[in-house]
Simulated scan of single mutants.
Amino acid sequence: MRGKTAEDARLLELLDPVAEAAGYEIVRLRLMGGAEKRRLQVMAERAVDGDMNIDDCARLSRVLSEVMDAADPITGEYVLEVSSPGIDRPLTRLKDFETYEGLEAKIELDRLAEGRKRFKGVLAGVEDETTIAIDLEGEEHTALVPFAWITDAKLVMSDQLMKRGAEERARRLQSDMTSEEEG
């Protein structure tokens, strides 16, 4: 889910270790566009706290550019775009479903389940390291969905998500101010 195509998967194999060595985790990678001008979109976050600010984007972009220039894995011209996953972020790793438990999400499957592929509900964690749990709208029981069936998942913008984002920013600012006072 972090990449959609075989080419995305090869780029992840190349770039994951580089990002990790720099202290980041790639949340999602997409190579988009035709043969002429392509765009390599990398969504990432700091491994230590899940944050990603403009300085982090620039730093990771420089590190990835060096490797991409040396390895030259993409034919033709492309533009590298490094960004934060954003507040209504994609959920691409099993750990994302744990981290954002209690928040509303939309998921799409690669097959029909109970006659449909798209579901919306509140994330209820992870079962047995291969299955996500979600409390679906209008359903009495928690649904268990194999992680391998999910092709797309993202958080839904809500007041609860906005509040959580604001609380996390306030904590980071407080932590930064405390660090500056001690230093």
Rank of each mutant, 00 (worst) to 15 (best):
A47Y: 04
E127H: 13
K120Y: 05
S65T: 14
N53Y: 09
M43A: 13
G102R: 04
E25A: 12
D55F: 07
E114N: 14
T151N: 13
L173D: 11
M162I: 14
E77S: 13
S61A: 11
G165N: 15
V145E: 09
I26P: 00
E36M: 12
R169P: 02
A9V: 12
E137I: 10
M43E: 12
M1R: 13
I132V: 15
I132R: 03
E101A: 15
E101T: 15
L14P: 05
G115F: 06
A71Y: 04
G102H: 08
R2N: 08
D135H: 14
K37M: 08
A6Y: 06
L144H: 14
K120I: 09
I26E: 04
I74Q: 04
L80S: 09
E77R: 12
E25G: 09
R46N: 08
P146C: 04
I87C: 05
A6I: 11
A44K: 03
F97M: 05
R46H: 10
Q174I: 01
I150S: 00
V122E: 08
K163W: 00
F147D: 08
K95E: 15
L12C: 08
L103C: 06
D110I: 07
R171E: 12
M162D: 01
P17Q: 08
E66V: 06
I54G: 03
R118M: 07
D72S: 11
V67I: 05
A21S: 13
V122G: 00
L91M: 05
D152Y: 11
V156T: 02
H141S: 10
A21Y: 07
L173R: 13
V42A: 00
V27P: 03
G121M: 02
S61C: 09
M162V: 13
R111V: 07
F119E: 00
D8Y: 08
L64F: 06
A166G: 06
T178H: 11
E81D: 15
G183K: 12
D159H: 04
W149E: 03
G121I: 00
N53D: 15
R46F: 06
G86A: 05
V122H: 02
R93A: 11
